[in-house]
């Protein structure tokens, strides 16, 4: 288990859980549900925010929020 904020660019992971109710509300409705594949596509300068590809689209979010998303290796 790792935090989404800690994983390397380009490696495939699977969303395990989102440890934050408010954040979960926003991400879930966009399709970032547990079990979905997720890849960190790139990072903004200063490594924050990060852009991830999930469920076929690219999404940007802040590092602190990404740290609430727990992922596991595919």
């Amino acid at each position: 288990m790792q935090k989404l904020s800690d994983i390397a660019i380009g490696k495939e992971y699977i969303i395990d859980s989102i440890n934050d109710d408010e954040l979960a509300q926003k991400l879930l409705e966009m399709g970032c549900t547990p079990g979905e594949k997720v890849v960190v596509e790139r990072k903004a300068p200063f490594n924050d925010p990060i852009a991830i590809v999930v469920s076929g689209f690219m999404l940007s979010l802040r590092k602190q929020d990404a740290s609430k998303i727990i992922v596991k290796k595919l």
Binding site: L23, K26, P49, R62, D65
Partner: peptide, 12 residues
């Protein structure tokens, strides 16, 4: 009043 988020789709 609420937490700040920056969650934005990056469209193709």
């Amino acid at each position: 009043k609420e937490r700040s988020f920056y969650i934005m789709e990056m469209p193709s």
